Amino acid sequence: MMDLSLLLWVVLALLIFWGVGLYNRLMRLRARGLEVMAVVEKHAGTCAALVRQYVAAPNAEGAAEVDAQWSHVQVAAGHLEQVLAQPRPASLQPSAVAALSDAWASMHAAWQEASAAPTDLAGPALPPDMQEAWNSASLKVQSASGGFNQIITLYNEAIQQYPARWVATLMGFQPAGHF
């Protein structure tokens, strides 16, 4: 009788320690995902600010005249800024991540299309320092989004593993979206 109750206490203790360990692991993965998402948002915002700086003052030195291509970039940057400004109570939800990913992809594609336009007699369409700043910020977005996707893959796999799936569901962990 004594051995059975001792065994039950040991099993209960192991289950509690396992549950606490699982919870801590999922919280660390989710927190790391949120940290990396903040980095993605920061650098995507930097890219949108570059567009605003470059396109906003068409007669300023080094600024482009606003033509159809650059107005398309400006619209895409405005959409990205709107997505970044929206409150997201659950930033890792697939819909929130997809909205940011789509806005970034749209602005990036518009920038690439506009900056690849042939140069005219006045020189390149973009000042070299502007292109450098864009390249730096967009590489940071791509790098951070790759890291984000790796973390989210680990997180999603962790909450889908059996029997952790039951505990994760009880604790309110939901699958996250990829960038």
Rank of each mutant, 00 (worst) to 15 (best):
R32Y: 07
Y23M: 01
L154F: 07
G78P: 07
A68V: 14
S145T: 02
A96W: 03
A103Y: 08
G21K: 05
V141T: 00
L26A: 07
L34N: 08
A114V: 08
F17G: 09
L170C: 11
P118S: 13
W166R: 14
L92C: 03
P124L: 09
E41D: 15
A99R: 10
W134L: 12
Q86L: 03
A96M: 07
F17Y: 11
L15I: 12
G19V: 02
P118K: 15
D120V: 07
V39R: 05
R25V: 06
A96C: 11
L139T: 15
E81P: 00
L8V: 14
D120C: 03
Q131L: 12
P94G: 06
H43L: 00
A90M: 11
G123F: 10
L22V: 08
A60W: 02
D3W: 11
C47R: 14
A49D: 13
V75P: 00
V10K: 06
P175V: 06
R165V: 10
L22K: 01
I159M: 04
W104G: 01
A137D: 06
E35I: 12
P87D: 13
N59Y: 05
A96G: 11
G146E: 01
V73D: 01
P94Y: 01
F148K: 02
E41G: 10
A13Y: 04
E65I: 03
V167P: 01
L7V: 08
V75G: 01
S106T: 15
L121M: 10
E61G: 08
D129V: 09
A122K: 12
C47L: 12
F173D: 00
Q93A: 15
N59E: 13
H108G: 05
A116L: 07
A133L: 06
L92A: 02
L14I: 11
G19A: 15
R165F: 10
Q53I: 02
L80T: 01
P118R: 14
G78A: 09
Q112A: 11
P58R: 05
N149S: 06
Q69A: 15
L12C: 14
V167Y: 14
L50Y: 04
A38K: 10
N24P: 04
T119F: 06
E61R: 13
I152N: 00
I151E: 01
A117K: 09
A164Q: 11
S91E: 08
V141I: 03
P87Q: 14
V39T: 12
T153M: 10
L84C: 08
L50I: 04
H79K: 09
A137H: 04
Y23K: 03
E35F: 09
Q74M: 13
A63D: 06
W9N: 07
V167W: 14
Q74V: 02
A63S: 15
